[in-house]
Amino acid sequence: MSKYRLDYLDELEAEAIYILREVAGQFEKPALLFSGGKDSITLVHLALKAFRPGKFPFPLVHIDTGHNFEETITYRDDMVARIGEKLIIGHVQDTIDEGKVIEQKGKNASRNPLQTVTLLDTIAKHKFDACIGGARRDEEKARAKERIFSVRDEFGQWDPKRQRPELWDIYNGRIHKGENVRVFPISNWTELDVWNYIRRENIPLPTIYFAHQRDCITRNGQLMAASPFLNMDADDVVEKKNVRFRTVGDMTCTAAVESYAFEIDDIINEIASSKISERGARMDDKVSEAAMEDRKKGGYF
């Protein structure tokens, strides 16, 4: 017996690599869902550590709402070119064109809820049996109860009452045809852990994570980036602000925070002293107390 223990970042990293390798070992057609956000960027970095010098045993999959921050797409394409792995893109626009979903109307219209349908279509089209995602248990109450291997039925639905017991670090990925598993290798990481890891590993990020000047409007008490995708009316006042983003999603639902954090050290200090949770800046979570649980049951990540 020894008092020596792994440093927390080493322990979290080792666990995530272990989970990624379990996916590779247990599934025939896995995929890594890549949003361009820091959590999925971290996943890609962990996959490099899990499988290099070999290739990834899965493609990256991006569900593209078409309402992206330009910086995210630039980052995505540069990264894919750098690591030389396969990227599959599922377009929400295609789902709209096929008439499977109808674009929301009104001031708070967002394509965010539509992407679940595109995700499920993409999974079905490519017959993915496991999808790796960057969700973390510290983000939200419903996520705090989700397994690391989370089985979804044919409709992508999560049934919180029928979750499999998950013991030790033995992950049961056996499924029936048509079902798939969502896998969350960084379940046990907190927002701050991700940032500290990004700093330690020198992982490049899209520029919108750092403070910059941007035209913003204030909606429901939150700062939103002014963009052609946001339905604006005469009441909306556009102001230049110094902002950054804590999460990267669709432009219509991701709020900015005012910030002068230009470097990663500034960001870590800012988060460490922040009193608002990361998902507090997501309008999609504000709808009701059970918003996330309901969306997960519907197939959302």
Partner: peptide
Amino acid sequence: TDGLKAEREQGITIDVAYKYFE
């Protein structure tokens, strides 16, 4: 610590919930 709707309704914990602090 109550995560799920059913738990809030019944006021009990049904499933394992993970919480993080430092």
